[in-house]
Each structure stands twice: as C-alpha cells, then as structure tokens.
Design a protein around this nucleic acid. Structure first.
Lengths: 363, 363
DNA sequence: CAATACGGCTGAAACGTTTCATGGCTGGGC
DNA sequence: GCCCAGCCATGAAACGTTTCAGCCGTATTG
C-alpha cells in the first residue's frame, strides 16, 4: 500500500540511502553502473519521491501560491496561464486559490499557503490593507502584488494603470456626446474598482469644468465642442454610481433590472462597467428589459476578455495585457526568491488600451 | 528569518514539544492554563505550523488534486467551484492543475501531485487510457474521474451522459429541418468529444434510416414529417466531421474561415459544436465572414456557459449541472479516502438538458 | 616512489512534526 | 492512611529525505 521509500530502494540496489539521494539530485556524482542499478530498483518498486520529506529537510518547496479574486473570470484565468508558464519553465508548480472576493476566504488560503511554506505568493488582494499579508512578508515569504499597485515602495507589484483606463473609457463616452454617465462597480475595497472609478471621476470632472467655463464665456450655448445632436449636450456632465455586490455576470443582470426601472430622465445614457463580466450581464439584462444598446444605453467594459467581441452587441472595452501581467509577476517573484535579502522591490505598470466596438458608438 | 518552530514555542512557554503539539491537535487534552501560555508564545513568535513536517510524520496531507482540461473554460471553473466548496467544508485544500489538453503536461502534473502525496485526485483525462494514472491508483491514491465515464467498473466517476447530449442536440437540428449537419470537435482522444459525436451520429443514422424507409414506401416524397420548406428536406440526413485542434474560442474562429470558404451546396446548414467556446468562436468567425446565424448556418453548442445566453445570437446549447458535477465528484473522492480498502466504486451519471435559443431556430 | 588529488561511496545527523509509552500528582473511595 | 483512577505533562522515537564529513582506493604529479 504505502509507496516505497528511498531506504527500500537502497536495500534493493545494495547501496546506501545517500547514494540513492545522489542519483536523484546529482546524477553525475554517481558512476553510471550504480546509477543504473538504482534506477532499476526505483522502477521495480514504483518509487515516488516524497516531497514533504524533501521540503522538510531541504527547507525549500517547489511551489508558488497564486490567489485571485475570481477563477471564473477569464481575465484571471489568462493571468494564471502566464504565471503557470513561467513557473513551469523554472520547475515550479502553482497552487491556484480563489478568494472569491471574500476576505475570510482569502485569509484562510494565505494561512494554508504559509503552512505549506510556498516559496512565494502572487496575490490580487481583496482589501487594500491586509494584516495577514503583512505578517507573511515579515516572516520572510516573498509576495508580489498582482493587478494591484503597491502603495508603499516596500514591495513588488505588477499592475495596469487603472486610473488611466478609467479615464480612457470615460473620455470615450463623453466624446460620443454622453453627459449622464454611470459607473457600475462594487466591492469598493477592491483597488481596481476604486481606481477605475477614480479615473472616470477625473474625466467627468474635467469635462464638467470645461462645460462651466464654456457657459460662463458664451452664455446660451453648449460649452463643449462635440459632434452635433448628442443627447443632453447642453447638460453638465455627471457620473452616477451604481453599486453592485460583485464583479460578476449575475451582478450585472441584477443591476440591469434596477436601471431599467429608473425613470428615463434620470437614467444614465452611458455606462462604464468595472469589468467585462459585469458589462455582459448588464447587456443581457438591459436587452431583456427591452432597452437597446447602444441606442438607449451605451456600454463599455474593462479587461477585453475574448467573449467581449462575441457579445450580442460587440462590447467596447479596455484591454489589458493579461498573460503578460501574469508572466511578469511570476518573473518578479522568482527574482525576489533568488535574490533574497538584497532584492530591490519594483513596481511595474502597464498602460491599458481603449478598444472601441459597437456597444458604445452612436450610429 | 526562518519561521519559529514548535521547539522554540515550547521553550518560551516552558513546556515540552509534545504539549505544544497537543495544543495544536487535541486542545482539550491540555489544561486551560498551559494552553493559554502556549498560545501566547505562538502569537509572540508568529508561529506557523510546518505542513511538510506534519504530513511527513502523520502520513496524510490535507490536499486533493484537481486536473482539468482547460482552466480558461467556464465549464471547468464552475466545476472547480463545486469541488472547492466541498473540500473547504472538509478542511481540505484543492491544488488546481491545468493540463491544457496536453498529454505530457498532464503527466507532469500527476507526477507532482503524487510526489506531494495528495489524498486523492479528481481528473478529466486527456486520453482514455493513461498508464501514469493506472500506476497512481495501483500505489493507493484514490482517483475519481470527472466528466469522464469509467469504462471499467474499477473506479469512481462522475459524468454527464454525453451520448444522450449529442443525440438531443442533433435531433433538435434535424427537427428544425436541417439535413446537411456538421459536427465540430477535436482532440478525438478526449472522451467527451468522442461521445458527443457518437450521439450525433446515432441521431443522424436513425433519421437517415427513417428517410430511406420513407422513400421506399412512398417513392417521390420526402421521408420525414417535418415543417415544410426546410432546406434540403428531400435529402438524406448526413453528418460531416469538422476537425479542430482544441475546444477553444480561437479554434472556432479558424474553423469558421474554412467553413465560410466551402461551396454552399457542400457546406452544412447546421453545426453541432463539441462545446460552447468553440461555438462562440464559430459564431464570431462566421459572422465576420458575412454569414448569418441561424439563417445561413444554425449553431448549437455544449455546456451552456453563462456567456452562451449573452452571445451575439443567443446560443442554443446542452446544459450540464456544472457545480453539482464538481460537488458530487469531491464527495465521492472523500468517501473513497475515508473508506479506504472497503470502498465500492460508483459511477454517477447525470442527464443533460437541451436549451433552445435563437442560434438554432428557423424564424 | 612519495605525496597529493580526486572520484565514488558510506553513515549519521538533522529538518519539524506527531504519537505513544511513561510517570508524577491530585483527589476520591474504602 | 492506602490504593487506584484520571488528568497532564514529558521525552524520545519515527516519518523520508538531504547534506556533509569522512573513508577507501586509484590515478596524477613532481
């Protein structure tokens, strides 16, 4: 029943356990003849190395942990692919954990990863501040923040400029002539949501300021120079917050019901969603409620997942380099693992890109 | 740097290591006073249990492995969610591995899982026969096949009746009056693909037989009673195979180019795709090539992932109980782990369900 | 030919737990 | 006042590796 150990292999091959270990770890420190004998013995017994013992004695595992907000989200699975590729190239394995945007769950997983003595952790944290994570770092496990900017200079992070992304999306909607904008997002503790919203708010505020200036200078005329005929172009740009519990397809559908029930003059004419899943859910829900996209409501998402292009109305979105994000993060982590004490933390920041499709364009 | 061990905790709390271990594992075998002292010492030192040592000594880990064909596929992430939920309820953690439909990769992961001495493995195998898996089972690690029927009675499996699903999808297309059908799938070693195709072939064969019988009985008239006007209803039903390298969005897009380039009289008027990702990719590609769905080509997928309903043309599909599949599989595995030798293998089979949407319905 | 180097192997210690036999102490029953 | 049971705590062995000092014999060098 129990798997054969190095000891039994040694006995069968008539060598010492040290030699068997050498065959495993330094094959060319062993003469070809004995090596052959040992390998045969292993085969015969169906020997499989016990990683627990190896890790215990050597003090190092071959594992890194990856904690994401939602495995169901193609964005994160693509990131995970990038991480996994780099890990595999370096003989490491990835333990993928799904916090599901839930603090306690995240906490449990981090605990488990630390008990496993993983060599390092990649994480998109649920909360900005995280005591558990601090402790883990203090005790010496390297941590790289993923899709989350390190606020302080004291750790590595790989992220995409979410404020910029939010601004790009919002400026695009404004340029289409929309004035009553909505931002759909939730779990405000998630930094991506907060930052994307910040970018949106900045864009709207800038436009509003320009509008007010324009009205002061030339009373009686709309302040912004946009293509004519845009609905409400004589209105001051505004941003309504639409709160949702999570960044999922289902959340989007529910939000759609609330939006559809709003009186038309109050309802935003354009929505910027904190991610594509949400946007697709909204598209589904709004269409079911009889609203046309982009006619009644324009829509733009975030992430540019594959399905965005294949949606009922091809979805405009903000593209992020997903796999590359994962790859770079994993490389950074490996670097930190290697360098140990003398490692200098780095913050890598990618620029997002606006992808315009039908869902946000006036025909 | 190094994390404190049980020994240092013992020293600080002035007790023996045995007592510290008891605090960890049998708290009520320790008097409240000492327990308190030990816990304080742990806190002060930031003690974290070393799972490697625990596993080595106790001979059991708290981990199960889950190997899926594609983490990028929402079907598998939903299954994973189910698995994870059950695991968490039982104090276990799941190591999620992505074989990416690649044999050698799967092989490597299985090896790693065995080295880790996971308590059990859930797997959707790439190949029907798998020597490595046989060995693992022989050496005593419980394995439950997931979304893959155990052919022999000698192991547990949880699956959905893919032959039935294939038949349902195909009968639906036939009922819509289609005669020139296509099956899009690939990696024929994957049992899901083979079985879904088998169901499709059965349905077409039955229809073809009925057609021939009809023509013999009443020469000069179409054999099947369907709604009139269906294209090619005087034709004998047939099934073309369209081979793709993998069940992904990208594969679908490529296949679409090939299909669009076919002369119309040869091109199938209805396609049954081995999964939704493929179907969505096809939808995207066919539409880009100027074909209308379902007008020029009707489409039905498999899995009924969330995005299926939100697609450009809402996608007909075959629904499977995804999370439940994962939950039941995990429960079965836990059962096998518990019962050990005296476990009796079981094969659970769910029935799939036809979901009709616009992509397959003649207007 | 002596001195040295080196390749190839051995044996034992150590990693951090769990587990278990052992034993001291306390208190209750007679 | 003695014995026994029950409660707590102890100390050492064991899990399967890696690692390292040391040994033996042969080859190399001057």
């Amino acid at each position: 029943m129990a798997i054969a150990s190095i000891k039994e292999v040694a006995k069968l091959a008539s060598v010492s356990v040290g030699t068997v270990s050498n065959v495993l770890n330094r094959p060319d420190a062993v003469s070809p003849a004995t090596r052959e004998r040992v390998l045969n013995a292993m085969n015969e017994l169906g020997f499989v190395r016990n990683e627990s013992a190896r890790a215990l004695r050597s003090g190092r595992t071959r594992t890194m942990g990856l904690v994401v907000l939602d495995v169901t989200n193609p964005f994160f699975t693509d990131v995970a692919k990038g991480v996994e590729a780099v890990a595999a190239d370096n003989g490491m394995i990835v333990t993928l954990c799904n916090s599901d945007q839930d603090g306690p769950r995240e906490h449990r997983y981090l605990h488990h990863l630390e008990e496993q003595r993983v060599q390092g952790i990649l994480i998109t944290p649920v909360e900005r501040e995280n005591e558990r994570l601090e402790q883990i770092i203090e005790r010496g496990t390297p941590v790289v923040l993923l899709d989350h900017r390190a606020t302080r200079r004291n750790r590595c992070s790989v992220a995409v400029d979410d404020v910029l992304g939010g601004r790009l999306a919002t400026e695009h909607l404004l340029a289409q002539g929309h004035r009553r904008l909505g931002f759909v997002g939730g779990s405000w503790s998630i930094s991506q949501v907060a930052e994307r919203h910040k970018g949106a708010a900045q864009a709207v505020e800038a436009a509003a300021a320009a509008f007010r200036r324009g009205r002061r200078d030339q009373p009686g005329e709309a302040g912004l120079a946009t293509e004519g005929g845009a609905a409400g172009s004589a209105e001051e740009p505004s941003l309504t917050l639409i709160d949702v519990p999570s960044l999922s397809f289902a959340s989007g559908r529910h939000a759609a019901e609330r939006l559809a029930a709003m009186p038309v003059p109050e309802r935003p004419t354009a929505l910027f969603c904190a991610n594509d899943l949400l946007a697709l859910g909204l598209m589904h829900g709004l269409t079911a409620a009889g609203l046309r996209i982009p006619g009644d409501v324009a829509l733009i998402g975030y992430d540019d997942i594959d399905y965005a292009a294949a949606a009922a109305v091809p979805l405009s979105s903000i593209r992020q380099p997903r796999e590359e994000l994962g790859r770079v993060a994993a490389e950074l982590l490996l670097e930190e693992i290697d360098e140990g004490e003398r490692h200098r933390h780095r913050q890598v920041l990618f620029d997002p890109e606006l992808v315009v499709r039908d869902s946000s364009v006036r025909r």
